[in-house]
Design a protein around this nucleic acid. Structure first.
Lengths: 110, 110
DNA sequence: AGACACTATCTTGTGACGCAAGATAGCGGA
DNA sequence: TCCGCTATCTTGCGTCACAAGATAGTGTCT
């Protein structure tokens, strides 16, 4: 098994990106996994459910069920006020962190 | 023990920032730890030595010893050609990754 | 009916790696 | 001698993404 080294980058970030995706509307797990997968932020849907459980136990999201017209019942997640605050705080941390990394990596792209 | 959640962000990144710091000149472990510590990229010097050993075993850096005028012998590290290529490749991956995260977090800072 | 594909959730075991703490040792000064 | 600073390396732990698989509801085709 070759274990993609970029997987390490996603640690702690995938979680916050879920909060980001929920800031405008509630979404269900499968939907989040597809979106994050397209952006390369989770490699496997198995990653997502424990992550959502963690967010929930920290009170950053809350869940409710709604039936689908075409398949099994879906579990939707929405941001709580605490989740919104967490997201805002993380945006600041991320901005500083990514700027620092940009500096340390150096700018020359060639 | 409270385990700083931002520690997760550093995973996989600290390593590459070492390569970045070595791109202009060789540095020794203690020096790297101080610099990275100031930038908040390693919380403890204990993190650094296993990291350097990994970079070395992957052939991305090479080491040589040089005596200090004021203390114990230092072990310096310099980039190899492979390390330089790795750094260049990672810069591209990082640019894409951080842009994606910026998007998913959303832009409104308030 | 039965078989299959698709959607959907959740669980389990593994591995990578940053963290805190500490061991070891050379150096200089009080 | 003792202490503090520099310097390297090791150990045990916790977190979390990954792959793989279990479970089950729905729809379609035959």
């Amino acid at each position: 098994m070759v274990t993609d080294p970029t997987a390490q980058l996603r640690r702690g970030v995938a979680e916050q990106c879920v909060l980001g995706l929920l800031r405008e509307r509630a979404r269900y797990g499968w939907e989040l996994a597809e979106t994050l997968g397209e952006h390369g932020l989770v490699a496997s849907i198995g990653t997502l459910y424990p992550l959502l459980a963690r967010l929930r136990s920290r009170g950053l999201v809350e869940a409710f069920e709604r039936e689908s017209e075409t398949g099994p019942t879906r579990k939707y997640y929405r941001l709580t006020d605490a989740g919104r605050r967490e997201l805002a705080a993380f945006r600041g941390q991320w901005a500083e962190f990514s700027r620092t990394v940009d500096d340390l990596l150096g700018r020359e792209p060639e």
